Amino acid sequence: MKMAVISEHLGLSWAELARELQFSVEDINRIRVENPNSLLEQSVALLNLWVIREGQNANMENLYTALQSIDRGEIVNMLE
């Protein structure tokens, strides 16, 4: 549920979040190519990849820290 809210509000910031979460330029470009027409779909794809990559370590605290690092703390505030 929280992931959906984050995806809805990320907009163009999804790529900046991807870099903050240590995704490569290739990963970011692949997300763009696979989801060409929708920032929402790109955001969802990023968060899904992050959960798959991090497994047990994919917790909201880590995601909140990354969001705050890219000056998107207002998204965190909405969810708390």
Rank of each mutant, 00 (worst) to 15 (best):
A4V: 06
V44D: 15
G11Q: 07
M1V: 13
S69G: 11
K2M: 10
V5R: 04
W14H: 01
E80H: 12
R53H: 02
N62L: 12
F23V: 10
K2W: 15
A58C: 14
R19C: 09
L47K: 01
R30L: 08
A45C: 07
N59C: 08
I28M: 06
A58T: 09
A4G: 14
R32C: 10
A18P: 00
E74G: 06
E41P: 04
Q42D: 03
L46F: 08
S7L: 02
W50C: 03
E61G: 05
L39R: 04
R19V: 11
A4R: 11
S38C: 11
I75G: 04
V25E: 14
A15L: 14
A66Y: 04
L12D: 10
V5S: 06
E16M: 08
S13Y: 04
L46Q: 00
N29V: 08
W14A: 02
Q22L: 10
Q56K: 12
M3D: 06
N35T: 07
M60R: 03
A58H: 08
M3E: 07
L10S: 01
M78F: 10
P36N: 11
L39W: 07
Q68R: 12
H9S: 01
L12F: 12
W50D: 03
W14Y: 01
I28Y: 05
E80S: 12
Q22Y: 09
E20V: 09
F23K: 02
N59T: 06
S38A: 07
S7D: 01
G73L: 05
L67W: 00
L79P: 07
P36S: 07
E20M: 11
A58K: 14
V44N: 15
S13L: 05
P36K: 07
D71R: 13
Q56Y: 10
I70P: 02
A15G: 11
N62M: 10
Q22P: 04
S43H: 04
E16I: 06
V25M: 12
R19F: 14
E80D: 15
M60L: 07
N57M: 11
S13M: 05
Q56C: 09
S7M: 01
S7N: 07
D27C: 12
L12N: 15
E80T: 06
M60T: 07
Q56D: 10
N59P: 08
E20W: 06
D27Y: 03
L21G: 00
Q22R: 11
N77S: 13
R30K: 14
W50V: 00
G11K: 06
M60P: 08
V25S: 13
V51Y: 13
R30I: 06
S7A: 15
I75A: 00
N62H: 12
E20H: 10
E41H: 09
L49D: 09
G55V: 01
S38F: 06
I6T: 14
L10Q: 01
S38H: 06
S69C: 14
A66I: 04
N37A: 13
K2A: 09
S69V: 14
L21I: 05
N37T: 11
S43G: 13
E8T: 09
D27Q: 11
Q68F: 09
S38K: 06
V33G: 12
V76R: 08
M3R: 12
L79Q: 11
A15Y: 15
E41I: 04
R32I: 10
N62Y: 13
P36F: 03
E80V: 10
A66C: 13
M3L: 15
R32P: 01
T65S: 13
V44S: 15
Q68A: 13
N37F: 10
G11R: 05
L40W: 15
R19Q: 12
N48Q: 08
N35C: 06
E80Y: 12
N35K: 12
V51H: 14
A45P: 02
L17M: 08
N59Q: 13
M60W: 14
R19E: 14
I31E: 00
S13A: 13
E41Q: 11
L67T: 00
M78A: 13
R32Y: 05
A45W: 00
G55Q: 06
V51W: 14
Y64E: 06
A18W: 01
G11D: 09
N57D: 11
G73S: 09
A15D: 08
V33S: 13
L12T: 14
S24V: 02
S43Y: 01
A45V: 04
S24G: 08
I70H: 05
A58M: 15
L79E: 06
R72W: 01
R53D: 03
V44I: 08
V33K: 08
P36E: 12
G11F: 04
E34H: 05
N59H: 06
E26W: 09
I28R: 04
E8S: 09
T65W: 07
S24R: 08
V5K: 07
A4M: 05
E20Q: 14
E8D: 07
A18H: 01
W14S: 01
F23I: 13
N29K: 14
G73H: 05
R19I: 04
A18Q: 00
L40I: 14
R30E: 07
E26I: 07
E41T: 09
V25K: 13
D71F: 03
E41D: 13
S7Q: 06
G11Y: 05
E41L: 08
R30Q: 12
A4D: 15
Q56T: 15
R19A: 12
L47N: 00
Q22D: 08
L67G: 01
K2R: 12
M3H: 08
M3A: 05
V44G: 14
A15V: 14
A58N: 15
L67E: 02
E16L: 09
L17K: 02
E8P: 08
Q22M: 13
I31W: 01
M1I: 12
A18I: 02
S38G: 10
I70M: 03
A15E: 14
S69P: 05
A18L: 04
V33D: 13
D71T: 06
W14Q: 03
N35I: 05
L46S: 01
N59G: 10
V51C: 15
G11M: 05
N48A: 05
N37Y: 06
W14N: 01
W50Q: 03
I70Y: 10
M78K: 15
L40D: 07
R30F: 04
L39T: 15
Q42Y: 01
N62W: 07
N57H: 08
G55A: 08
R30C: 13
L47R: 02
H9E: 10
G55I: 03
R72P: 08
R32E: 14
M78L: 13
V25Y: 15
S7Y: 08
E34R: 08
A18E: 06
P36C: 12
V33F: 14
R72K: 10
F23Q: 01
R19L: 14
Q22E: 12
Q68T: 08
D71A: 08
S69L: 09
A18C: 00
A15M: 12
R30N: 10
L47G: 04
Q56N: 09
N77I: 09
R19K: 12
E74A: 06
Q42I: 00
A45I: 05
L47C: 12
L49P: 02
G11N: 09
E8A: 09
V25Q: 13
Q22W: 04
S24E: 12
D71W: 01
A66F: 00
A4E: 10
N35M: 06
R32F: 14
E8C: 03
V33A: 15
A4H: 03
E34P: 00
T65C: 13
L67A: 01
L47S: 01
G73N: 06
A45G: 08
Q56E: 14
L10I: 09
L46I: 05
V76M: 07
G55C: 06
Q56A: 11
F23N: 00
P36T: 04
M78Y: 10
R19N: 06
E26Q: 10
Y64M: 09
A45D: 07
L67Q: 02
R32N: 06
S38V: 06
S13N: 05
Q22T: 12
L10W: 01
N62V: 14
W14K: 04
M3C: 06
I28F: 02
L49N: 07
L67P: 01
E54N: 12
L63C: 02
E54V: 05
A45T: 11
L12M: 08
M60C: 04
T65H: 12
Q56W: 08
F23E: 00
